[in-house]
Simulated scan of single mutants.
Amino acid sequence: MASSPVLSSGNLLTLGMFLFGMDTAAYSEFQRSQAWRHEGTDRHMARPASQFVGPGEDTITLAGLLVPEIFGTYGSLDRLVEMADTGDNWPLVDGIGRVLGHFRIDRLDTTHRMVLAGGIPRAVDFQIQLTRVD
């Protein structure tokens, strides 16, 4: 008898050793875009011939909100920047243990909101773009 996956309320997604969750950086939106490549050859008086040549781009965009007083930490975004600075790629594993592939960090956008004295934001919107490399 197959057992059902164990769901963890704190583990949304793992990129390498970075855990996306309530204690670090919880995302509220997960968007994935996958493509497949087909090459075409023109034919006289007919539609182009097409041949499937393999998978194309596979990107994931995660968007979320950090409110360190309630959930998430500023240090989590710093850690993601450090990971991106290496240029490496890491396995991406969802909360039920499915490996989605190896992804690199291509982009991290942040928006500071409700900025307090000293330039410290009470909330930070973030969006991170990952691209599959395997």
Results as ranks from 00 to 15, higher is better:
residue 107 R to P: 03
residue 108 L to P: 00
residue 121 P to T: 08
residue 124 V to N: 02
residue 103 F to W: 14
residue 123 A to S: 15
residue 111 T to F: 04
residue 92 L to A: 10
residue 84 A to E: 03
residue 93 V to I: 13
residue 78 D to C: 13
residue 119 G to S: 00
residue 87 G to V: 10
residue 111 T to I: 04
residue 94 D to N: 13
residue 113 R to I: 01
residue 91 P to N: 11
residue 90 W to Q: 02
residue 100 L to I: 08
residue 95 G to I: 09
residue 108 L to F: 01
residue 96 I to P: 01
residue 79 R to S: 10
residue 80 L to I: 10
residue 122 R to V: 09
residue 106 D to S: 04
residue 83 M to E: 01
residue 78 D to K: 15
residue 94 D to L: 03
residue 83 M to P: 07
residue 100 L to F: 12
residue 124 V to L: 06
residue 92 L to S: 11
residue 116 L to M: 14
residue 105 I to E: 07
residue 91 P to Q: 12
residue 82 E to L: 13
residue 105 I to R: 02
residue 109 D to A: 03
residue 120 I to K: 14
residue 89 N to V: 15
residue 83 M to T: 01
residue 89 N to D: 15
residue 110 T to F: 05
residue 121 P to F: 11
residue 116 L to T: 11
residue 105 I to W: 07
residue 112 H to G: 02
residue 94 D to Q: 06
residue 107 R to W: 00
residue 123 A to Q: 12
residue 118 G to M: 06
residue 97 G to D: 12
residue 105 I to D: 06
residue 80 L to V: 04
residue 96 I to Q: 13
residue 102 H to I: 13
residue 84 A to M: 09
residue 74 Y to I: 04
residue 106 D to F: 00
residue 74 Y to K: 02
residue 79 R to V: 05
residue 96 I to T: 08
residue 92 L to P: 13
residue 74 Y to F: 14
residue 108 L to Q: 00
residue 78 D to G: 14
residue 101 G to E: 12
residue 81 V to G: 02
residue 86 T to N: 02
residue 95 G to W: 03
residue 83 M to N: 02
residue 98 R to Q: 12
residue 106 D to I: 00
residue 88 D to Q: 12
residue 104 R to T: 13
residue 113 R to G: 14
residue 90 W to L: 08
residue 74 Y to A: 09
residue 78 D to L: 15
residue 87 G to Y: 10
residue 101 G to M: 09
residue 75 G to M: 05
residue 103 F to T: 13
residue 89 N to A: 15
residue 78 D to A: 15
residue 118 G to I: 12
residue 110 T to E: 11
residue 98 R to G: 05
residue 97 G to F: 05
residue 95 G to C: 09
residue 102 H to G: 14
residue 101 G to F: 10
residue 78 D to W: 13
residue 112 H to M: 06
residue 112 H to I: 05
residue 124 V to R: 07
residue 119 G to P: 00
residue 105 I to F: 10
residue 121 P to M: 04
residue 93 V to P: 11
residue 122 R to C: 09
residue 104 R to N: 14
residue 94 D to C: 04
residue 114 M to G: 03
residue 107 R to Y: 00
residue 86 T to F: 08
residue 115 V to T: 01
residue 111 T to Q: 07
residue 75 G to Q: 13
residue 88 D to L: 13
residue 111 T to D: 09
residue 110 T to G: 02
residue 121 P to N: 11
residue 118 G to N: 08
residue 120 I to P: 10
residue 119 G to D: 00
residue 80 L to D: 01
residue 114 M to C: 08
residue 87 G to H: 02
residue 101 G to V: 09
residue 75 G to C: 06
residue 97 G to S: 11
residue 84 A to T: 02
residue 106 D to N: 05
residue 98 R to E: 14
residue 95 G to Y: 05
residue 118 G to L: 06
residue 88 D to H: 12
